[in-house]
Amino acid sequence: MENVVELKGVTKNFKGFSVENMNLEVKQGCITGFIGENGAGISTTLKMIMNLLRPDAGEVNIFGMNYRQHEKEIKQRIGFVCDSNVYYEGLNVKDIKRIVAPAYKQWDDALFHRYVDQFELPLNKAIKKFSKGMQMKVSLAIALSHQAELIIMDEPTAGLDSIFRRELLHVLQELKEDRQRTIFFSTHITTDLDRIADYIAFIHKGNLIFNYSTHEIEENYTLVKGSLDLLDWETEQVFVHVHRTSTGFEALAKNIQDVEHTFGNDVIMERASLEDIMYHYKGGMKHAKFNMA
């Protein structure tokens, strides 16, 4: 399967924060969810993919091309939804379309109006009078109306009510069925990804922890529960993080075979949700530091 987005050894340093040596691939025709806690480097990575930020080191290739030589060709083929409203608030949807549409060779006005109808967007009302969710719908309608092959979205479901969130996921699912389309989006609402994602890329403190298919995550990660007497320095090595309670422990492991080999049938293994994984990695870092100290 071809990679639509390739980040090779990408590093970006800011004061007090950096994205370190990131290698990320986004596969063609798939929906990849990009997850991580606030400040993990999600927006920075997405902005580097959009050439809004330039990496200090490493290479960003989109459709096998780089931005130095092919900026316009690349961006013709991308639909981008930012996490904040980037449109002029005093303008209405019609005027915003007048500004954006001529930039794209493949702008499809009929498709745009279909989304406007579907999302129930008023065309002649200034968007400053729109709710955050409505403004997000405007961005989505615009990003989806020029036959983009790659759709990149930063938190598209934030600020949307649950009904529209489902509607959006349905739209994305439809887009995915056309195998040419690749969708890469970040979200804090991991249940959205359970519904539609093929791959999940997880970033933590500027480092890419994994970029697995949902199947691989299910095969590798597991939530383990058992009694405290099973834990010692050696057995704990199979876990990313252990959470102890008075009645026992709950831990995240990233290799099911290791857990079976170490504990046999003495523990209970459950499917780890994305939220479990994020939670334990966040705690896991603290745990590692504690252990080192």
Binding site: M50, E71, E73, S84, N85, V86, Y88, A103
Partner: peptide
Amino acid sequence: AYDEKAETDILLNSLPYT
């Protein structure tokens, strides 16, 4: 004046312009 109020740089740079 308009561009100062909005995130125009992000908008324009995400469109196919250099």
